[in-house]
């Protein structure tokens, strides 16, 4: 049952990818195809990265309505960007080698996530307290970011501004190769951890009883999540509800919380929604920039719906 639905999702993902490449193909076909392939690769990466990071994050926290952005991870990333502009100036920021910058940002985000989360994990704070701390950190970094935004030159602000909103139309194809390496590595680790993730979803006591080193494993998984969030935020900007939308959809489509099914289902759903949505908006509705808004809108509605329905914890 779940396998057939997974197969269906795979077909769907393949179909939207083909549609994205093929619809309205004219002019210099080789040139257009190359451009579209690059963009497709970026969108697939973003969809997969957000979907997988959200599923892992929800499993670790044992909560179905949370996303990594609630822990303030993307706020942290954007704060890092703003800090760089503040310190180096707009020109210096633009002059930085994008891949080097991205690599440093990923490490910075993972390091900071580690520095914030590990002490909390080590003292065995309960998850509720940790999430509260995450929400507070998120607000802190957003506020710091807007404080810096007020301090810098308006011209330099415009440099950062383009990075602060989700834009699926202007993906950063220059970061693609580097981001792909990070994503693929993270996906391989996530896939190999699928059985451990199943056990983690039983909660800390049961998982420890079954021989999982809870603190170490969870710390590793949160590092994985922060790497994936860094990838997607770097490529398209922060998206709050997309992960929630995809994880909730995937769980309902395959009707399972087993990660051997759920992880690929979420990744494929991410591709279908993102690439399919982009195709639809680009060709049928003619306003490709609106996709981010619509995804956040629908995701927000689902968030409310899950809250109202009690979300079965």
């Amino acid at each position: 049952m779940a396998d057939r639905r997974l197969f269906g999702l795979g077909l769907g993902a393949f179909a939207v990818a083909a549609a994205f490449l093929a619809i309205g193909l004219k002019g210099n076909i080789a040139f257009v195809l190359e451009l579209r392939l690059l963009k497709l690769a970026a969108l697939v990466q973003v969809g997969v990265a957000i979907a997988v990071s959200t599923v892992i994050f929800q499993t670790v926290t044992g909560n179905r309505i949370l996303t990594p952005s609630i822990m303030g991870l993307d706020a942290l990333y954007l704060f890092g960007q703003m800090l760089l502009v503040f310190l180096l100036g707009g020109v210096g920021y633009v002059a930085l080698d994008p891949q080097l910058k991205f690599g440093l940002e990923v490490l910075f985000l993972m390091g900071l996530a580690c520095a914030l989360l590990l002490p909390m994990l080590r003292s065995r704070l309960d998850m509720g307290l940790m999430l509260l701390a995450g929400v507070v950190f998120g607000v802190l970094f957003r506020s710091l970011q807007s404080l810096l935004a007020r301090l810098i030159d308006p011209n330099e602000f415009s440099v950062v501004q383009s990075a602060s909103f989700a834009n699926f139309n202007a993906v950063r194809t220059d970061l693609l190769v580097f981001a792909a390496i990070v994503t693929v590595l993270a996906i391989i680790i996530a896939w190999r951890s699928r059985h451990v993730l199943d056990v983690i979803s039983l909660g800390p006591d049961a998982a420890t009883g079954l021989g999982v080193n809870w603190a170490g494993t969870v710390a590793g998984l949160l590092l994985l999540v922060s790497a994936l969030v860094a990838v997607s935020t770097a490529l398209v900007g922060p998206v709050a509800f997309f992960g929630l939308l995809v994880a909730a959809l995937a769980e309902r489509i395959v009707d399972s919380r087993r990660h051997a099914v759920l992880l690929p289902a979420a990744a494929l759903t991410g591709i279908v929604v993102l690439v399919g949505g982009q195709t639809l908006f680009q060709h049928a509705l003619g306003s490709a920039t609106a996709l981010g808004v619509v995804i956040e809108f629908v995701g927000g509605l689902i968030f409310l719906l899950l809250l109202v329905l009690g979300s079965r914890k």
Binding site: D205, T208, G209, G211, V212, D255
Partner: peptide
């Protein structure tokens, strides 16, 4: 190591809740 111990000793805690489907 937790895994070695898990082959020797099993625990069931009071009020264990299973959140997963």
């Amino acid at each position: 190591p937790g895994r070695d111990l898990a082959k020797v000793l099993a625990i069931l805690r009071q009020d264990t809740t299973v959140a997963s489907r």
